[in-house]
Design a protein around this nucleic acid. Structure first.
Length: 439
RNA sequence: GCGACUGUGGCGAAGUGGUUAACGCACUGGAUUGUGGCUCCAGCACUCGAGGGUUCAAUUCCCUUCAGUCGCCCCA
C-alpha cells in the first residue's frame, strides 16, 4: 500500500461514467455523418516543431504547457496539446489537398495533453472532439461548422448554451487593429493591472477581456474590431451572420472574444455554458477560421475552418441536463445449484448469447440468496433456475423479474420463450436487436 | 507558475495526546441447506494520504511531501 502506484496528477480513470462517454461518442459519430464529415485519426505524439510553428511560439500552450520528451533515437517528441496542427500536418503529408472531394471535411476524437494545474473542467490528459474543413474560404462553411457544433449539443440534449461570435478579420485587419489598440492603451498603462501590462506587449487584444480592468472608462472608449476590418473581412463576417440567421442558429456577437491560438483569422467563436456549471472554464467548444495555417506548415495555400470541444466539459453539461442513460443490464441470469447444473448452464448460456441475448451467470458458488442478489445487481430481466430437479426433467425454471411470474419450461424451449417475451409489445431493448416495434 | 481549503473502511461521516477508531449505507454469512427485495443476528479499518520530527505515548501537535477541490493565468 505504501508503494502503491497511483494515477498521474490531472488524469483520471473512467469507470461509472463510461456510459456518458459512450453516449457522447455515439452522437459525435451520428452528427458528423449528418454533416458529411469523415473521421481521421492521427498519432498522439508529433515532432515538437509542429506545435511551435503551428500553434505559435508565444502561446501559453507551447511555451509552457507541452509534454516534451526525447526518445532513444534523439528525436524531440511532443504529446499533442491540441488537434488542429496534427490534422493540418496529416492533410499536407497525405496530400489530401489533391483529393477530388472539396472541401475536405474531417473530424477527430481523442486525448490531448497539457501540463497545467488541474481544476474544474481542466485536466492534464483530456479529450477533444474536433472538426476541420479544408479548401474553401466561403463564409457559408464557417456557418456550417458552427451549425455542426450546435447540432451536436442538440443531439446531446444540452440546451443552456450560448454561441459567441466574433471576427478577427484578415491579416491586415489584425495588424491595423493591434496597432490602434496599442496606441489607445499606451498612455494609460499605469492604470491597468499587471497582467494587462504584460498583455500589452504579448497580445493587446487580450486586454479587452480582462476581468480586473473591464469596467474602466478606457475600456469603453477602446477602438472596436469592426472599425479596422477591411471591406472583404467585413463582407465575410456579415455573410456568416446572415447564414447563421437563415439556419436559425442562435448566437450573440461578442467583439471582445479573443482566442488563444495564434493561427486564427476571420471568424472565431465559442460555445459557453453557465458559470454555475463550469466556473471560468465554461467554454465547451472553441473554434474559428485559419486561412494561413496550412501554408505556414509548408502546405499549399489552403483556407480552413474548425472547432474543438472539450469532452470532459461536455459531460459536465450532459449530467446537469440529466441525459438519459440506459442502465447496464442482462436479459438472462442463470441461477445454478450444483455441478450438473453448472455444466448445463454453461451450455445454455452460450446458446442464448449466440442468439443475441445478454446473458450472465454465477462464478462464485454462491447460495441461492447470493445469486438472486447478483442477478438484481446485473439488472437481469429473467432468472433461469437450474437444480437437480430440472436436470432430471430437462426443464428450467424461469422467473420474470418484471412481473414476478414464474414458470417451468423444457430446456429446449428456453431460447425461443425468452425471445418471445422480450419482443412482446412495449418492450424495447437498446442493446440488442429484440425490439418490440420491429417485430 | 501563484493562492486558498481539504485528505479517517467500497461510499458518507464522527472522534480523541494514552489500552478494543463511533455511527449510517453498501457488502458477506446465517436465521430461511431451491427463490433476492422486509426483519433479526453476526462479520467487515493490524489503521486514520505518505515521510519525518516533538513526546514516555501521535490518527490527534509541528515540518515536508503527495493527491484532491476551487480560484488566478490560460484554455477545451
Amino acid at each position: 500500500m505504501i508503494l502503491m502506484i497511483k494515477r498521474m496528477k490531472g488524469t483520471y480513470d473512467i469507470t461509472d461514467d463510461i456510459g456518458y462517454y459512450q453516449a457522447v461518442e455515439t452522437q459525435i459519430n451520428k452528427v458528423s455523418k449528418l454533416f458529411a464529415y469523415q473521421e481521421i485519426r492521427t498519432p498522439h505524439f508529433e515532432n515538437r516543431d509542429l506545435f511551435h510553428r503551428g500553434v505559435g511560439e508565444d502561446s501559453d500552450i507551447v511555451s509552457k504547457e507541452t509534454y516534451d520528451f526525447e526518445d532513444r533515437g534523439g528525436r524531440i517528441n511532443t504529446l499533442r496539446p491540441e488537434g488542429t496542427a496534427p490534422i493540418v500536418r496529416a492533410f499536407i503529408e497525405n496530400k489530401l489537398y489533391a483529393n477530388p472531394v472539396v472541401p475536405q471535411k474531417v473530424y477527430y476524437y481523442g486525448s490531448m495533453f497539457r501540463y497545467e494545474r488541474p481544476q474544474k473542467g481542466r485536466f492534464r490528459e483530456f479529450r477533444q472532439f474536433g472538426a476541420e474543413a479544408f479548401g474553401s474560404a466561403e463564409p457559408a462553411l464557417d456557418a456550417e461548422i458552427i451549425a455542426y457544433a450546435h447540432t451536436l449539443l442538440r443531439a446531446l440534449k444540452i440546451n443552456d448554451v450560448t454561441v459567441h461570435l466574433n471576427t478577427l478579420g484578415d491579416k491586415k485587419s489584425q495588424t491595423d487593429y493591434a496597432t490602434a489598440l496599442k496606441k489607445h492603451f499606451k498612455p494609460h498603462l499605469d492604470t491597468l493591472c499587471g497582467d494587462c501590462n504584460k498583455r500589452f506587449s504579448d497580445n493587446p487584444l487580450r486586454i479587452l477581456d480582462c476581468k480586473v480592468d473591464q469596467d474602466k472608462p478606457i475600456m469603453q472608449t477602446a477602438p472596436k474590431t469592426l472599425d479596422y476590418l477591411t471591406e472583404a473581412a467585413k463582407a465575410h463576417f456579415d455573410a456568416v451572420v446572415d447564414y447563421l440567421t437563415a439556419m436559425k442558429i442562435p448566437f450573440e456577437i461578442d467583439h471582445n472574444l479573443v482566442r488563444g491560438l495564434d493561427y486564427y483569422t476571420h471568424t472565431v467563436f465559442e460555445l459557453k455554458v453557465s458559470k454555475e456549471l463550469l466556473g471560468n472554464q465554461n467554454a465547451i467548444c472553441g473554434g474559428g477560421r485559419y486561412d494561413n495555417l496550412v501554408e505556414t506548415l509548408d502546405g499549399p495555400p489552403t483556407p480552413a475552418v474548425g472547432f474543438a470541444f472539450g469532452v470532459e466539459r461536455l459531460i459536465v453539461a450532459l449530467k446537469a441536463n440529466d441525459y438519459p442513460l440506459v442502465d447496464p443490464h442482462v436479459h438472462a441470469y442463470f441461477l445454478i445449484m450444483g455441478k450438473q447444473a453448472r455444466l448445463k448452464a454453461m451450455e445454455l448460456s452460450q446458446k442464448l448469447r449466440l442468439g443475441g441475448l445478454l446473458t450472465d451467470l454465477d462464478y462464485m458458488d454462491k447460495g441461492m440468496k447470493g445469486q438472486f442478489k447478483q442477478s438484481a445487481h446485473k439488472n437481469a430481466r429473467f432468472v433461469i433456475i437450474i437444480g437437480d430437479a430440472e436436470i432430471e426433467n430437462e426443464t428450467v425454471n424461469v422467473k420474470d423479474q418484471l412481473n414476478n411470474e414464474e414458470w417451468t419450461i423444457a430446456m429446449d424451449n428456453l431460447y425461443i420463450t425468452l425471445v418471445e417475451k422480450l419482443t412482446a409489445k412495449n418492450y424495447d431493448c437498446e442493446d440488442c436487436d429484440h425490439k418490440g416495434e420491429s417485430q
